[in-house]
Deep mutational scan, measured.
Amino acid sequence: MAAGGDHGSPDSYRSPLASRYASPEMCFVFSDRYKFRTWRQLWLWLAEAEQTLGLPITDEQIQEMKSNLENIDFKMAAEEEKRLRHDVMAHVHTFGHCCPKAAGIIHLGATSCYVGDNTDLIILRNALDLLLPKLARVISRLADFAKERASLPTLGFTHFQPAQLTTVGKRCCLWIQDLCMDLQNLKRVRDDLRFRGVKGTTGTQASFLQLFEGDDHKVEQLDKMVTEKAGFKRAFIITGQTYTRKVDIEVLSVLASLGASVHKICTDIRLLANLKEMEEPFEKQQIGSSAMPYKRNPMRSERCCSLARHLMTLVMDPLQTASVQWFERTLDDSANRRICLAEAFLTADTILNTLQNISEGLVVYPKVIERRIRQELPFMATENIIMAMVKAGGSRQDCHEKIRVLSQQAASVVKQEGGDNDLIERIQVDAYFSPIHSQLDHLLDPSSFTGRASQQVQRFLEEEVYPLLKPYESVMKVKAELCL
């Protein structure tokens, strides 16, 4: 049975990233139509530049190519590739079939990587351009969430054990800070992308030097003109047959890092959902379990974690691919890159769409948070109580021993009897502590235990987050809708 299948058929496997999760716009960027249309555009740009620099290419040939950029006979191309065992030459023939007058000058002087690699770089750039505003929107939604809850005390956790208090907004800023680093890295790697350009079979530009009869300047002009037509500021000066596969490492490393950030955020949300302090959106008709109707599973956060793990592992592909590119190139890269580049971007696209949807509907339960604080705060307040007693004339050592005994009794009630923490009640009825009984409410005010959390939130948002989001103001209103 021949390899390949009808990918629109229910009898043929289709990647869930495309069929179930990723956005239509990201799927289109990695589609065959987008790819092969870009090949034709690159052939047109090459012909236009070659004509401008004096090669015998007519206006009629150029116009014929322009008129057929979208006229792609995919069936013919597939048949040609089956016959020739070469995808680029299959599309040269297919393009030439609908451009008979231009057929002889299509791909003039070029090698397969002229269309293959340059198209990949265009796709990487455009895919990054799709991700950047999506990530900015996630940051914006979380920034709104953090600002609104900047002063809401909550129990902090280290080692997932109760620690000092923080605020809900401050905790959210930990998430935002990681995503801001990801946004900066995505922008950097996007701006650092260079075009492969017009380089020939081993990167020496020998074929173009021959076409222009040894004119170095025209060869350099050709490279520059096509690079500018493709919208790049610069091209690699040095290439082998391909652009260095280190570029793929750079791009997928940034995406993998984004995956790590999203995994951490969504894990926190899942843990908070278990504590009943916070939940992701839950639709009115949504079913959490087929057997347990009360369940409210954090399905979206779980999906993000599941896909983020996949995204983090994909960076190993370009690392290994770059390491086995012998001399000017081997074909070890080809099949692998067809999979890992598309999957990385479709996965990143999915987790950003999902995280935006989550961040637009996060639900906080202040009463649950308050109750958990009441359970733990008495123990945390013991040092403040000791200091207040010393100020009232008591002995630190005597007070410490009193607190120690009462704390152990209260802990026994919590752990052995399943009761509430009654340390404060014990202190309130103990005559030894009568000098500070009137101060206990103040000493137990949760806001006095959150330090500068709310001020940190305000400063972080104003100095770091809002300036970073400013270039994306025009796209901030787009909502994230999930079908599944």
Rank of each mutant, 00 (worst) to 15 (best):
M1I: 02
A3S: 10
G5K: 15
G5Q: 05
G8H: 15
S9G: 05
P10A: 13
D11Y: 09
Y13H: 08
P16Q: 15
A22F: 06
S23D: 13
F28P: 01
S31E: 07
D32L: 13
R33I: 10
K35N: 13
F36N: 13
W39D: 07
L42I: 11
W43F: 09
W45I: 15
L46S: 05
A47T: 06
E48D: 06
A49E: 04
T52H: 13
P56Y: 10
I57R: 01
T58S: 13
E64Y: 11
K66S: 09
S67N: 13
E70L: 10
E70S: 15
D73P: 12
M76H: 10
E80P: 03
E81D: 15
K82R: 12
R85E: 00
R85K: 13
R85V: 13
V88L: 08
T94Q: 13
F95A: 07
F95P: 01
H97T: 08
C98P: 07
K101I: 12
A102M: 07
A103N: 15
S112A: 04
Y114S: 04
V115I: 14
D117F: 02
D117V: 01
D120R: 06
I122R: 01
I123N: 07
R125K: 14
N126K: 12
L128D: 04
L128G: 13
D129G: 13
L130C: 09
L131S: 12
L131Q: 14
L131W: 00
L132C: 14
L135S: 09
I139L: 13
L142A: 06
F145M: 06
A146H: 03
R149Y: 14
S151D: 09
S151I: 11
P153S: 06
T154W: 10
L155G: 02
F157W: 07
T158G: 01
T158N: 00
F160N: 07
Q161L: 01
A163I: 01
L165A: 00
L165V: 12
T166A: 06
T167E: 03
T167L: 00
V168C: 07
G169S: 04
G169I: 01
K170W: 02
K170V: 01
K170D: 00
L179Q: 05
L179Y: 01
C180F: 12
D182F: 00
D182A: 04
D182I: 01
L183E: 08
L183D: 03
N185W: 11
V189A: 09
K199Y: 01
G200Q: 04
Q205Y: 00
A206W: 00
L209I: 14
Q210T: 14
K218Q: 10
K224R: 10
M225Y: 09
M225H: 11
V226R: 01
K229Q: 08
F232P: 01
F236S: 08
F236N: 06
I238D: 00
T239W: 03
Q241M: 04
Y243I: 09
V247K: 10
V247P: 02
D248K: 04
D248I: 03
V251R: 05
L252Q: 08
L252E: 03
L255D: 02
A256R: 02
A256I: 00
S257C: 09
L258M: 12
S261A: 09
K264W: 02
I265H: 07
C266N: 07
C266Y: 03
T267W: 00
D268R: 00
I269N: 03
L275Y: 06
K276R: 07
E277T: 04
E279D: 03
E279L: 05
E280N: 00
E283G: 11
E283W: 03
K284L: 12
K284I: 15
G288F: 04
S290L: 02
P293D: 02
R296V: 12
P298Y: 01
P298G: 02
M299Q: 12
S301G: 12
S301N: 03
E302M: 05
E302I: 00
R303D: 00
L307I: 08
L307W: 06
R309I: 04
M312N: 01
M316L: 12
L319K: 00
V324G: 07
R329H: 06
T330E: 00
L331K: 04
D332R: 02
I339K: 08
C340T: 13
L341F: 14
A342F: 07
E343Q: 13
E343N: 12
F345A: 12
T350Q: 12
I351S: 05
L352N: 06
T354R: 02
N357F: 08
I358S: 11
I358D: 06
S359C: 08
E360R: 03
G361C: 15
Y365K: 05
K367S: 10
I369P: 04
I369C: 11
I373A: 07
M380F: 09
I385V: 11
I386S: 05
A388R: 04
A388D: 02
A388Q: 05
A388K: 05
V390A: 09
A392W: 15
G394R: 11
S395M: 09
R396Q: 01
Q397H: 08
Q397Y: 03
C399L: 06
R404T: 06
V405M: 13
V405A: 14
Q408W: 07
Q408L: 09
A411D: 03
S412C: 11
S412D: 09
G418F: 02
G419C: 09
D420I: 04
D420Q: 05
N421Y: 06
D422A: 05
E425R: 13
R426S: 09
I427P: 03
Q428S: 13
Q428H: 13
Y432I: 06
F433M: 08
S434N: 10
S434K: 13
P435R: 11
H437K: 11
Q439C: 14
D441K: 11
H442T: 14
L443G: 03
S447R: 12
F449V: 05
G451H: 01
G451L: 04
R452S: 13
R452N: 10
Q455C: 12
Q455I: 08
Q458T: 13
R459T: 11
F460C: 06
F460Q: 02
L461P: 05
V465W: 04
V465E: 03
P471A: 15
Y472K: 06
S474A: 14
V475R: 15
K477Y: 14
K479L: 15
